[in-house]
Design a protein around this nucleic acid. Structure first.
Lengths: 126, 126
DNA sequence: CGGTATCCGGAGGGATACTG
DNA sequence: CAGTATCCCTCCGGATACCG
């Protein structure tokens, strides 16, 4: 896999539209909150407040903001139930579940190297 | 896989040390620049300046900062050749290569859903 | 060439209040 | 309950300059 679409400099005149789009999507998605939200959703259907409680220390604002972004990119589906009080539910779409699979990989990786990393930190800090 | 170590609230008294460490590592690693640097390195050995040219629009400062962080966590190995001018080289360690595999997954995912996402964006923006 | 230090503008993101 | 808007301040991160 040639990854110039991710690593290529944006000022490069040869950079195709697809390349810069890929980079844009990558930048949207490769951030802490987005990944944690997707991981928290998993294969469940959750309400806004359940997500707020479910994702560590995320603020109301960040949650809304990231959910909008994920919805815009078609990774989550938002369903509003016109009841009172309102009930809004979020689920991963198929692309969203695809991304989730790779995030699961990152989580597993973290678990696996937890010890390695902690050691390395101590060595480095000395 | 129980992911409470990632999604659990930090103020939760039951949160174990391992859980918060996992969260900390995840936060370090789940950021745009770190992921792009790792992806750019791949299985190559690159100099500082090669990385700066290789990673799209990254600044001197961000590159140094992220490389230090990755080195501290034991994901990259830094080798200084005591020549003049100095030559400093970076390679992924074994844990680093493990993480890289999952990032490859994210890149592949991006490529795969490029079309889906672009469409979704247009629909949303209307 | 690679790294550190300093400055500083602007985005990120929290707290709060208000609407439907 | 979910979402938007406003305020406000921190700190991210770019630009620049200077060391080894």
């Amino acid at each position: 896999m040639g990854n110039r679409q991710f690593t290529g400099a944006p000022e490069d005149a040869d950079l195709t539209r697809a390349d810069s789009l890929a980079r844009e999507i990558f930048s949207d998605v490769a951030n802490k909150w987005a990944l944690l939200i997707i991981e928290c959703l998993g294969d469940r259907t959750l309400r806004f407040s359940e997500l707020r409680d479910g994702v560590a220390g995320i603020s109301h604002k960040m949650l809304t903001q990231n959910l909008r972004m994920l919805e815009r990119n078609g990774l989550v589906e938002r369903t509003v139930h016109p009841t009172v009080p309102p009930r809004v539910e979020y689920v991963l779409t198929e692309p969203g579940r695809g991304l989730r699979a790779t995030i699961d990989g990152m989580c597993a990786w973290t678990q696996r190297y937890l010890g390695h990393i902690e050691e390395s930190r101590h060595r480095f800090d000395a």
